[in-house]
Amino acid sequence: MSDVLFTMAGHGFSSGEMLALAGLGLAAVLGFALWRQGRARADAALEMALRAQEADQRMRDLARIQHETAGRVQSMAEVLSQRQSELARVVAERLDDTSHRLGQTMANASHATHESLTRIAERLVMVEAAERSLSDLSTQVLSLRETLANKQARGAFGQARMEAIISDGLPKTAFAFQYTLSNGRRPDCVIFLPGDSRPLVIDAKFPLESITQFREARNAEARKAAATRLRNDLMKHVNDVSQRYLLAGETQDIALIFVPSESVYADIQEHMDTVVQAAFRARVVLVSPTLLMLAVQLVQAISRDARMREEADRIRAEVGALVGDVARLRERVSDLSRHFGQAGDDLAKLTISADKISRRGARLEQLEFGDSAPAHAPDKS
């Protein structure tokens, strides 16, 4: 038992000492375990106490919150009751207002409906009048169609429209209708240009049947045949005008063919360009009412310029006479200015004499008549 098991720090430990140390260590461990167990029980008890206290606090908070909630619910019930009363009052007021507005709206709608019916009745009367006007217009259109269907009537229609344009734009001495040429032909109208004795010839005929057939063609074959007929008729008319009315040295180098319809003229320009070019080479120009008006305005400008050139000599003579009158007026103004200068000098002399007389009168008023008064010599100034 006294055998040394190991040595530490110069001291040898025997088996007995080791058993004693082991016993002490076990006792320390057991003591520490008991202490920890007691400490754990104390902590558990403290935690349970805290939990119990927290639960109690929560119960008191729940009771307080329940009491507050009950108060708030009662307050909300009172507020809801008050709001319900106010809502009932507002709804009643709104219903009354809505009923009043609805009645007023119904009255206004009734009045507006009455006015609308009145206006509709008036418009129906206007529609009836327009229908009668349309009937009259249809009659007039049919009459115009019948007129255009007749060659002589159609010629008179084109002639009348051309005469209206020419008569409105030119003086009577600048044109003539049915003027007779040297070959016995009588064109529809001629226009005399200033400074030129050769008249400008205007023809007012056009092939309406061919144009109508071309417009009303139903298929390509019929349209092609109508185009051929229209082209032939136009070329025949252009050749007739060129041969009958273009006389060298007697008429102008070109002649006009008046087409009294803008739509017909547009169809010719769009679909018959070859005819238009051939007519231009034949010195014949196709014109619509608008182009004829432009030509009339051009003739007006040329006539105005010619009259101004004719009056230029008279204007020059009048200006020379005016310059002489101005020169004489200047001489007479110079004479009058000299007279005014002389009169001004005379007036200045008169003013000097008047001043002298005034001064002498003042001196006479200041004299004191007596024995010792000196005699004044006469003033020679």
Rank of each mutant, 00 (worst) to 15 (best):
V201L: 06
K205H: 10
G195D: 01
E221D: 05
S210M: 15
I202Y: 02
R186M: 13
L193D: 00
I191T: 03
A225N: 09
D196W: 03
P187F: 12
P187M: 12
K224H: 07
R215L: 14
R185L: 08
F214R: 14
S197Y: 13
A220H: 06
I202H: 13
P194S: 05
R223I: 13
F206A: 02
F192W: 01
F214Y: 15
L193E: 01
R215I: 13
D196G: 05
N219Y: 02
G195E: 00
L200M: 00
V201Q: 00
P207I: 03
D188W: 05
P199W: 05
D203Q: 09
R185W: 05
V201R: 08
P207Q: 02
K224T: 13
T212A: 15
N219H: 03
S197W: 07
E209R: 09
V190A: 00
P207D: 02
A204G: 01
D188A: 11
F192N: 01
R198N: 01
V201C: 06
G195W: 13
Q213S: 10
I211G: 12
V190Y: 01
A220C: 04
R186F: 04
P194R: 08
P187W: 02
E216T: 15
R198Q: 02
P207E: 07
R185Q: 08
I211P: 00
I202T: 06
A222D: 11
K205R: 04
D196S: 10
I211R: 10
D203M: 08
Q213H: 15
K224D: 06
A222K: 10
C189S: 12
L208N: 09
T212H: 08
D196Y: 05
F214K: 12
K205S: 08
G195P: 03
S210H: 11
I211Q: 11
A222L: 10
A204M: 02
P207L: 10
I191W: 12
S210A: 13
R218T: 07
E216G: 09
I191R: 10
L200A: 07
P187T: 15
D188V: 06
A220E: 07
A220V: 11
R223H: 11
F192Y: 08
K205L: 03
I202L: 11
Q213L: 14
A222R: 14
S197L: 04
T212Y: 11
E221N: 03
P194N: 10
L208D: 00
P194A: 14
P187K: 14
S197K: 08
I202M: 03
L200F: 01
R198A: 07
T212M: 11
P199Y: 03
D188L: 13
R223Y: 05
D203W: 11
V201P: 03
A222I: 03
V190W: 02
T212C: 04
A204N: 00
V190T: 12
P207W: 05
V190K: 08
L193I: 07
E209H: 12
